[in-house]
Every structure is written in structure tokens, then in C-alpha cells.
């Protein structure tokens, strides 16, 4: 049997964009009351802070190690993901069903990148929303950046950004691109897409790594296909 024919015989297995579950989106700690005021310095990336007897989680810094869930302050865990935040405007309506994406690995550990690769696979099937990964920045409308922006990748990242034609949008994916994540403060990284780089971030999605559904949602938010959950 030819590959094409056997491909047609296999049923469509793509999950819906709302298929939140323990496997697709294992979860994140959620803020909870803590009248005992447990010391919060156990968080490796200082993502916890205390506000009016509550522990509050700062998701752009959270690296999903779940230490605050499995050890005191024993925060509850919630299945799902932190919704993407839109910082500027989505792309115009003309892009709604045809968006090309250029991915740049600026030093990620491989997990964020693998989640993006999964997006192009049959389970998440990015293409059904009219989003395609393109080989050349000249054809791209959205620049997706993963990793804490290592000093060695800075030049290549800038060159890629400059090569994108206007109008363009930048999506920062994962704790590293947002804040440096666990690599924050290393001499060899820029702590993510910091303003001094001159690459304006239009949308961001938190997580270490953000599950494919979260990245998918972020791309749909950027193209105006869905409204931003966490617009700020």
C-alpha cells in the first residue's frame, strides 16, 4: 500500500484547541491563601510573592518545577496553562487564515522547540488554522523566539528580525524568552527578549515549556482568530 493511500485511511487524530488535560497541559501552581506566611525563597526563580496572606505566582518567571506544590507552601495545582498575553495589536484581518512563522532558537534547552515541532505534527496540526512554519524570514509574518537569548545568538536573532517584512509580530515562547527563566543572571545570556535588544515583544506565552496548546493559542491570539485571555 502506498504511503499516500494508507495516510488517507488513518482517521484524523488532531485534538481540539480546547483539549486541556493532564497529558496535554499537566498544570501549574495556582495562588492560594497562606496565613502561615511560609518563606517563599524556596522558589528557584523567585516567582512567588506574598500579598495579603496569599501566595501569588508570577507565571512569566515560573519554570514548572512544581516544588511549591510538592513542598510547603503546598500550593494547589491546576490542570491547564497560563493564557497568552497580548502586549500590542494582533495582525490585520487579512492574515487571519494565512500566517507564516519563522522560529529562532536563541539557546533553549530543546523542550520549547520540541513542543513547537509537535505543533506541526498531526496531533496539534497547526496547518488547519492556516499557520505555517516557513524556511525564510522574508516570507514570515511572525517571529517566534525560544530560549534565553544567548550572547552568541544575539547577532543571528537580530538579523532574522530585521529580515522580516512589515507588518511583523514577535512571539516570545517560554520562561527563558520571557525572563531568562532558570538561566537568568548568567553572563552568557540576555535574560530573554529584554527591551535593550530592540526587538519589541507583541505577545508572550509563559511556561517551562509552555504546552503546545498554549503556543497554539498564542499564535491564534496574534492573528486575531481568538481574543486574548490575559490581555494586559
Amino acid at each position: 500500500m502506498s504511503w499516500v493511500y494508507s495516510g488517507l485511511r488513518r482517521p484524523v487524530e488532531a485534538v481540539s484547541a480546547e483539549a486541556v488535560g493532564r497529558g496535554t497541559t499537566p498544570g501549574r501552581p495556582v495562588s492560594a491563601p497562606d496565613p502561615l506566611r511560609t518563606p517563599l525563597n524556596m522558589c528557584p526563580t523567585d516567582a512567588l510573592r506574598s500579598e495579603n496572606d496569599r501566595v501569588v505566582v508570577d507565571y512569566p518567571r515560573c519554570i514548572n518545577c512544581l516544588r511549591c506544590v510538592r513542598e510547603p507552601p503546598s500550593l494547589p495545582v491546576e490542570v491547564g496553562y497560563e493564557p497568552a498575553r497580548l502586549l500590542t495589536e494582533p495582525l490585520a484581518a487579512a492574515f487571519r487564515h494565512s500566517v507564516h512563522v519563522r522560529v529562532v532558537d536563541a539557546g533553549d534547552c530543546g523542550a520549547c522547540l520540541n513542543e513547537i515541532r509537535q505543533l506541526t505534527g498531526p496531533v496539534y496540526s497547526l496547518h488547519r488554522f492556516g499557520v505555517y512554519v516557513t524556511p525564510t524570514p522574508r516570507d514570515a509574518d511572525v517571529l517566534v523566539v525560544v530560549g534565553p537569548v544567548t550572547r552568541a545568538m544575539e547577532g543571528a536573532l537580530m538579523a532574522t528580525y530585521d529580515a522580516l517584512p512589515d507588518p511583523k509580530r514577535v512571539l516570545a515562547v517560554g520562561a527563558c524568552a520571557l525572563s531568562g527563566g532558570i538561566f537568568r543572571g548568567s553572563f552568557a545570556v540576555r535574560d530573554g527578549l529584554v527591551p535593550s535588544l530592540g526587538i519589541p515583544v507583541d505577545a508572550m506565552v509563559a511556561g517551562c515549556p509552555p504546552p503546545p496548546l498554549a503556543i497554539l493559542e498564542a499564535l491564534l491570539v496574534l492573528t486575531g482568530q481568538v481574543a486574548a485571555g490575559g490581555r494586559s
Binding site: 539557546g107 544567548t150 552568541a152 545568538m153 538561566f183 552568557a188 545570556v189
Partner: peptide, 11 residues
Amino acid sequence: LFYKYRGIERM
């Protein structure tokens, strides 16, 4: 290599 050098050993 080392475009992705994050200085982990130093960290």
C-alpha cells in the same frame, strides 16, 4: 557549536 552556550557550569 556553542551558539547556545548558556554558561551552565558557571551557574
